[in-house]
Write a protein that binds this DNA or RNA. Sequence first.
RNA 1: GGAGGGGUUCCCGAGUGGCUAAAGGGAUCAGACUGUAAAUCUGACGCGCGAGCUUCGGUGGUUCGAAUCCACCCCCCUCCA
Length: 427
Amino acid sequence: MADLPMDLLKDLGSRGLISQISSEDEFKSHLVSAQRTLYSGFDPTADSLHIGHLVPLLALRRFQLVGHKPLALVGGATGLIGDPSFKSAERQLNTADVVSGWVAKLQGQLEQYLDFNCGENSAVVVNNLEWTGRLSALEFLRDIGKHFSVNSMIQKESVRQRLEREGSGISFTEFSYMILQSYDFAELYKRYGCTLQIGGSDQWGNITGGIDLARRMHQGHVYGLTLPLVTKADGQKFGKTESGTIWLDPNKTSPYYFYQFWLGTADADVYKFLKYFTFMAPEEIDEIEQADLSSGKRPQAQSVLAEAVTKLVHGEQGLSAAVRISSSLFSGDLLELTEADFDQLCLDGLPATDIAGTSLSLVEALVSTGLAMSNRAAREFVEAGAVYVNGRKVENLDARIGLEDSLYGRYIVLKRGKKLFHLMRLT
RNA sequence: GGAGGGGUUCCCGAGUGGCUAAAGGGAUCAGACUGUAAAUCUGACGCGCGAGCUUCGGUGGUUCGAAUCCACCCCCCUCCA
């Protein structure tokens, strides 16, 4: 990380991490002339951050690494309202209790990625409930709302769809979200001298709202920078798989699965993702790309990416666990694993289920381990030759598995399809 | 408050009394080919081994038979006030 270029904006630019910048030239000289304070907001919409949050979070870190002071804002207040930006439908409100529980979890996660003990530019985690929570309706309307023109608010691209599309709509609650986020920026300017907000490009409307408000309320001159939304070459949504979102919380997405997710990155995306999600120098990434192109073999970039991001999120231990499981399952011979290896795989996060009884049908096993949604589906998988027991393909619908199939008298590895493994423990 | 439009299987979206578990597309899954990639091809895609069963916002009706007709209710959208 020491080799991070001093010219931060140039680095961000060559990573493709800059989408929009307000008052660009002015901002550039602002940024290089002194240590600045910046922030990015994270709303509690679930009990964990997911990989989509990594881009702004790492961007905060990138700023910190060159000496700026990052504020990570948790939206204890805004999370109660719901950001309508580019959302096609109104969202269900969560209860205050639920949201405050999520706030606590997010705070813990945010702390992992920033340095809170580096003197002047130590990071700070803030919660907008602190200032928004005690705002009265009259204060909100008189002191803040007065600065906003509805005319300009309805022009925002981010709510256009909701306003114009037949069959859609937007509540006053969500429509007001922008005002709250704008107020955050103004307030952080006042409290911390924060002069920059970063966020995904979908946040541009909310950010510019804050820039205007900081000027109107405090005569502050502040800036906004947006990061690109992560897109995939095949047009699919980034960060979602068949089994759902890729979370940062190891209890929601195991390090093993997390590692596998990155390993499966398409060639068309992998170099871009290296630039987005790692601190490797762009030149170094370009070199990997060149090497992969000329090797004519399977590219290395995916493993580099998977290792870097898994290590960043789950640490050295999480990474080695993920690699250990992956190599036993995909390249090792299962029969060569020792009993201790199996115990370790369980601890490492290989999905496992305890099965009572000495013998059950393969179809039942597939369903009870969740490898198949229903008996019908399970049969289909077996008939299609998609099911392996301890590495051996089984196509017999009536097959039973039990003690005699187990390794060390209790372990059976089921595989469905090319990548999905599940460990059964007989009890 | 008034008038009109709408709620269909993961999503979009056909379907207005039986031929409809419900067209088509997307997503997803599996197989083949590969590199745990992409593209392509093949197949699956409510549940059930099966006879069959349970679905089309909810409840209750009409009918031999309803996603389709009727009543009431809930939710969404548009316009008017």
